[in-house]
């Protein structure tokens, strides 16, 4: 008898603590529900309707999704997005790792270098894009000037549809400061002990990197790949500015920088097809979701958590 009272007493206390806790996070919870969950759920409903933002939505079932499956422009935008993910994201992560490895060495003025590599990250995407448009200018740009000295072909970076995406990727390398800093933090967490042991065993620098460093920082790589994937699929500002700043229509020369998110924006706010745009958003969600799961599943093979190796 006494035991049960005690038990229910502790239960009550636990419940009280839960409520107090919820009360404390309620402002955030409220925000999450009203500004995130509610719009997300509403967009799911809109994706099944014909909705122009002003009138009331008209139920059309899966029509939007069917139309989307036949939308050539959607596939083009998806291609552009995947292009920038494969040729942008992965090389950029590798580049950031190389820089982080260099910055992790004991060189003079280490902190100065770290600051320099991080600085571009502080420049807003729009300002950075405008700056790069000058560097990439085909006639007077610094980059073509250098290429000219080296007797290399000087492409028309901003106006030739073949080169617009590479331009954006090139610019992306400039903004890898955050990735570098995160890698740097991970590198400094690798126990020195391992390297000492490896040195005694006569391991080469490459063996040390491949067998110690890379596995040890693999959780960070996983994190960066997943966040990068999500970010890449939402690629917007730079592509938008590159077209706009050149006096071109959204999408740039021959729609070569029409990314999925840009097409979505255009569909929603220029063409006022909110239902269709909502459907696009959900398709994007599903794509990113599946890719994230794939990365997660494969991660068992290449990601090691502390001491598991």
């Amino acid at each position: 008898m006494a035991a049960t009272t005690l038990q229910s007493e502790s239960k009550r206390r636990a419940r009280k603590r839960l409520y107090t806790g919820l009360l404390f996070i309620s402002p955030w919870l409220f925000g999450l529900l009203v500004f995130q969950l509610l719009p997300i759920m509403t967009s799911l409903y809109y994706s099944l309707t014909d909705f122009n933002l002003f009138g009331s939505p008209e139920w059309v079932g899966v029509d939007n999704f069917v139309a989307l499956a036949h939308d050539k422009k959607m596939y083009l935008s998806l291609y552009n997005t995947i292009f920038i993910t494969i040729f942008g994201l992965f090389p950029q992560i590798a580049f950031a790792l190389v820089i982080a490895l260099l910055l992790n060495r004991d060189v003079k003025g280490k902190s100065l270098y770290r600051t320099i590599y991080f600085l571009p990250t502080l420049v807003p995407a729009i300002a950075g894009s405008l700056l790069w448009m000058w560097l990439l200018n085909a006639q007077y740009g610094l980059i073509n000037e250098v290429l000219g000295y080296l007797h290399l072909p000087a492409p028309n970076w901003l106006l030739d549809p073949k080169w617009t995406k590479p331009s954006l990727i090139l610019m992306g390398f400039w903004g890898t400061g955050t990735t570098t800093i995160m890698y740097l933090a991970a590198l400094q967490d690798v126990p020195k002990l391992y390297y000492e042991a490896a040195s005694i065993d006569g391991a080469s620098p490459w063996q040390k990197f491949w067998n110690i460093t890379f596995p040890a920082i693999s959780p960070m790589t996983l994190f960066l790949v997943i966040m990068g994937l999500i970010g890449s699929f939402q690629y917007f500002s730079q592509g938008y500015i590159f077209a706009d700043g050149n006096g071109q229509a959204i999408g740039g020369p021959e729609n070569s920088i029409l990314f999925y998110a840009i097409y979505l924006y255009q569909t929603a706010f220029s063409f006022l097809k909110m239902g269709y745009a909502s459907a696009m958003a959900w398709v994007l969600f599903v794509i990113v979701f599946i890719l994230t799961i794939i990365v997660f599943k494969t991660s068992a093979k290449w990601v090691y958590y502390g001491g598991e190796k």
């Binding site: 239960k11 839960l18 409520y19 919820l22 409220f30 529900l33 509610l38």
Partner: peptide, 18 residues
């Protein structure tokens, strides 16, 4: 029990916000 009241609380918040 805890889960139930959590769901209850969440749905209350949602209803309130709507």
């Amino acid at each position: 029990r805890g889960k139930k009241s959590l769901i209850l609380f969440t749905s209350l918040m949602l209803v309130a916000s709507m």
